[in-house]
Design a protein around this nucleic acid. Structure first.
Lengths: 232, 232
DNA sequence: ATCTAGCTTTTTGTATCCATATTTTGGAGC
DNA sequence: GCTCCAAAATATGGATACAAAAAGCTAGAT
């Protein structure tokens, strides 16, 4: 968090997805600048970025306002993510992967397998799984050979539940959640297998299904679920 | 072209895709500001936007430089566009379309059909077809019910050959090109049919194929082809 | 009471100035 | 001739100032 712009950005992201602003509130450069103790210049750059991320929308002459994000919106963003991840998987299957990429994917799978087998307490299980999950998804997207996928994904990755590898987790029913994670894990295994066998269509189909899985929890993103996301 | 930022943006887009800059050239705020006769502030904002569009890349302390866009890069961007358009087609098929959307799509198809039947001279044919083509693609993407598709697409739509409905056209062989356009036209017909019959999978598959068709010309985007694009 | 003209406030775009960081340059020492 | 360090040039981020445009408000006319 070195620059003022980044500072405003991360604070504002948190506040917006936290629901600190009402959708009818007018958010102006000056107000934000005052609130954050910075000048208008970084405030306006941050607000423009927030708009590009889909969290705010610009009113003609009345500043910005938070875009009301409902579960359907989250679902739509996840749907976009899933076709992008699907394309990434297909590309990696068709173009092949480097030894390093393969190693990373295998490591991620090994780690989550070990976690699921062991009887870790809830927090450790989830934290560890989340970590491995993010690595799997990021490795795949960032090494698929088409950098425009990552580039395009930038536009939605900061929306709630939309970051790569985000997990929604209900801590109240550990056993059930463990089974659910196992399903996700098995899909990772299948995806890697399809990539190794250069089966683009299978890799894509499985990845789309897998990436869309978060969708089932989209309507619960405010509820008794814990949303575990790496960065905002 | 009211604001300075927009002015710099459109001029720079043109210059970059035109190849006016070499990939090793350092592009700095000050240089652009001087060249365009504006101050640093709008220049900065425009350069940041250009970076977000994938046309420039930022060096740590040495300003920006044009990202060398080769045919493979264009192909990759088109591949991303095709999965986004495919998803849009699927969504529209699954959710149904409004009467207005249907009318627009039908009008576009009617217009291109009429153009292909008549024996127009080259320019009129291409111009008219392009117009109808853009309407078809934009209507579909903007009315599919998932605004994040358009939102995400923003990130690549200014790359060469990547705008919705862009046509690459070789004016030297009119008859062959007319046949090629006919193929595209028939795909529009099929896509609309699939949407009407609520066949999401067929709509998506056809749209992906159709949208990828530009890809065949990606490696020729500098050559004796005329690239017809609406806006930069 | 309503409409509108004109004034006030807010917002936005732009320019300029300042401080800091980074790169480049130039020179001293080996 | 090469290396390393210091100084200069350049780039960047940020703050503030100013102007123009847009929105809001007030008051007067109808």
């Amino acid at each position: 968090m070195t620059t003022h712009v980044e500072k405003v950005l991360s604070i504002m992201r948190r506040k917006v997805v936290n629901g600190d602003y009402n959708s009818c509130d007018r958010i102006s450069e000056v107000a934000i600048a005052l609130e954050m103790g910075v000048s208008r210049t970084p405030a306006r750059i941050a607000l423009a970025a927030l708009e590009a991320e889909g969290l705010l929308e610009k009113r003609k002459g009345r500043g910005y306002s938070v875009r009301p994000i409902q579960s359907q919106d989250v679902a739509k963003a996840i749907e976009v993510r899933s076709v992008l991840e699907g394309l990434a998987a297909r590309n990696m299957a068709q173009n092949g992967m480097t030894a390093d990429t393969k190693r990373r994917l295998q490591n991620s799978i090994r780690q989550s397998a070990a976690l699921l087998e062991s009887h870790q307490p809830s927090d450790d299980l989830i934290g560890g799984y989340q970590q491995a999950n993010v690595i799997f998804h990021e490795t795949l997207m960032n090494n698929c050979g088409n950098e425009f996928i990552t580039h395009t994904f930038e536009r939605i990755r900061h929306l709630p539940l939309t970051a790569l590898g985000t997990l929604a987790f209900r801590p109240t029913n550990l056993d059930k959640e463990r089974r659910r994670l196992s399903v996700g894990h098995s899909q990772h295994v299948i995806i890697l297998d399809a990539i190794e066998k250069r089966d683009g269509a299978r890799a894509e189909a499985m990845m789309r299904e897998h990436s869309n899985a978060t969708l089932n929890y989209a309507d619960l993103f405010v509820g008794d679920y814990s949303v575990i996301s790496v960065d905002l």
